[in-house]
């Protein structure tokens, strides 16, 4: 089992991004995804900067992957996408079918990101035949269905040729819109958003109306520009033995402003057998970041925001 760190969904100042990757390359992470996947207007790092950063990090011994924008709206988005795909020094993660088309057209291998809708082995095969080497499972797919997809892919004869990655830790990317909800919350038009999402390094929490009545209620969602994330932190770290069993190759940790390196180390030591127990309580006790409310429902086929105890026989 390998560990990856996903693209940073939030808008951080340039220096914070640089510091983050300096810290991350010191960890036992195997794959690093980078690039702007949420909003084309963010400009602390432009596509040229991401390309440069990717090149720099290639020397770190880590596998580097450049991630593309998820919602493509304008010609400028397409131009940036084409540049990224043709100049990338490394593998590219396609987060939209535009990117898949451009990469396939250039006979370049690619990773299908979590926003590419692959729900069955037949769709997986279509993309495999176009050069997909790895896919990141859409976050709402449950364990049994993933198991079914991978078994079917084996039967169809290409299961061994691709890698499977599962979003395993962090706030879930749930939706993308033409509208910017951070700007809306700040009463700004999207065109005049003042890039206000830079003020929220872990997004802007959204609660149900009832939080005022009963004091603290769990966050429902997290607003991050045009992206809506889960309010809770998805945590499948303790599921690594199950994932290993059904054929998952990579577990993805999604960056937060704090503690990401610790989560990677923790997971890595569990994977190497140093500490087998990654149960929620223990993680809770050890890592400050993880004191945030957790969920794992999608994996068990129940509402994503729910928390299930590991089922008997999981391990």
């Amino acid at each position: 089992m390998k560990i990856s760190v996903g693209p940073i969904y939030y808008y951080w100042p340039r220096q914070q991004v640089m510091d983050f990757y300096q810290e991350i390359i010191q960890t036992p992470v195997d794959v690093i995804y980078l690039g702007e996947t949420v909003c084309a207007k963010r400009r602390e790092l432009r596509s040229g900067d991401w390309l440069e950063l990717a090149e720099e990090l290639c020397d770190s011994g880590k596998k580097i992957v450049l991630s593309t924008l998820t919602l493509i709206e304008s010609r400028a988005d397409i131009a940036a996408l084409k540049k990224l795909c043709s100049q990338s020094p490394c593998l590219v993660e396609a987060n939209d079918m535009s990117a898949v088309q451009i990469l396939a057209d250039n006979n370049l291998p690619f990773v299908a990101g979590p926003s590419i809708n692959i729900y069955n082995a037949q769709a997986l095969q279509v993309l495999y035949q176009k050069g997909m080497q790895r896919w990141v499972m859409p976050v709402e797919i449950m364990r049994q269905n993933l198991d079914g997809i991978l078994k079917q892919a084996m039967t169809m004869g290409f299961g061994d040729m691709i890698e499977t990655e599962v979003f395993s830790y962090g706030k879930l990317p749930l939706a993308y819109s033409a509208r910017c909800f951070t700007a809306r919350a700040k009463n700004l038009a999207k065109d005049g958003c003042q890039l206000s999402c830079i003020d929220y390094p872990d997004g802007l929490p959204l609660h149900s109306q009832e939080f005022q009545v009963h004091g603290e209620t769990p966050k429902l969602f997290t607003i991050n520009g045009i992206q809506t994330q889960s309010g809770k932190c998805y945590n499948l770290l303790d599921q690594w033995p199950v994932m290993h069993k059904i054929g998952v190759d990579i577990m993805r940790v999604s960056p937060g402003s704090q503690g990401t390196a610790d989560v990677i180390r923790q997971l890595s030591s569990a994977l190497s057998g140093a500490s087998a127990d990654l149960s929620r309580t223990q993680v809770n006790g050890q890592l400050k970041l993880i004191s945030e409310e957790q969920c794992n429902g999608y994996w068990y086929g129940v509402p994503g925001m729910d928390s299930c105890a590991g089922l008997a026989g999981d391990k």
Binding site: N117, V139, L172, L174, A175, Y176, M305
Partner: peptide
């Protein structure tokens, strides 16, 4: 096709 809000809740 890119919204999981409903299945999250």
């Amino acid at each position: 096709g890119r919204c999981h809000l409903s299945s999250y809740v």
